[in-house]
């Protein structure tokens, strides 16, 4: 094929491009992923029953602050990294901040408690359920967001994949927080933080394979 022929083909009857389509596709994928995750969570587990107690509500807000603290900046970074060369203008190292913050809080909480309580604070009642639920429920949001990112043009597939995993994990953890009755800070740091990080790691591994264009 001659390049001139390709150019005449591509340049024939060019359609106007909707400038807002790019951000709209990505943000609606995140929203759809979130709805699916919340729906799946409510359907399988339901909301925790003790929400009328003040302590439960505070813990719920803390968990949501943690997951939103990941979700919002990660979505902003994803929009940047989905444009060619976006990784040159953005460092995603800031995404470590919510994790560092929750680990510090967990450390403070542990140090102010007697060591005989540590075991219970760290493993809670439902650590296994948390460990399995968050990554499982993250699968559908992950697929939806990957589908949307495949329509863009990321040039750093590892970081972009990591961000998609991070968002999917945070969305899933947000849903799980509505159900989960383990409220200690070390539990949140380890099982929420750990599973979200795991989703991000999986995303980084799958990114170059799923997002190639």
């Amino acid at each position: 094929m001659k390049t001139d022929d390709l150019i005449s083909m591509l340049g024939a009857n060019v359609e106007r491009v909707d400038r807002r389509q790019f951000v709209r596709t990505l943000s609606s994928a995140v929203v759809v992923g979130a709805i699916v995750a919340l729906g799946a969570m409510l359907f399988t587990f339901g909301i925790r029953a003790d929400l009328d107690e003040a302590g439960a509500l505070t813990s719920l807000f803390l968990k949501l602050a943690f997951t939103m603290g990941i979700l919002v900046p990660a979505s902003v970074y994803l929009i940047r990294l989905s444009r060619p060369g976006g990784e040159r203008k953005t460092s995603i190292a800031l995404m470590a901040l919510p994790f560092i913050a929750i680990m510090l809080l967990a450390a403070i909480s542990l140090s102010s408690a007697p060591s005989s309580h540590w075991n219970k604070m760290i493993t809670g009642d439902q650590w296994l359920e948390c460990l399995l639920s968050i990554p499982t429920i993250a699968i559908v949001p992950f697929a939806v967001i990957i589908w949307a990112v495949r329509r863009t043009a990321p040039t750093d597939l590892v970081r972009t994949g990591a961000l998609v995993g991070l968002i999917a994990g945070a969305v899933s953890a947000t849903g799980y927080a509505l159900h989960c009755i383990d409220d200690s800070l070390p539990f949140i740091a380890l099982w929420y933080g750990g599973t979200i990080a795991l989703c991000s790691f999986a995303g980084a591994k799958l990114g170059p394979w799923l997002l190639r264009w």
Partner: peptide, 8 residues
């Protein structure tokens, strides 16, 4: 051409 919507 196919990814020109990603240009800001």
């Amino acid at each position: 051409h196919t990814r020109r919507h990603t240009y800001h």
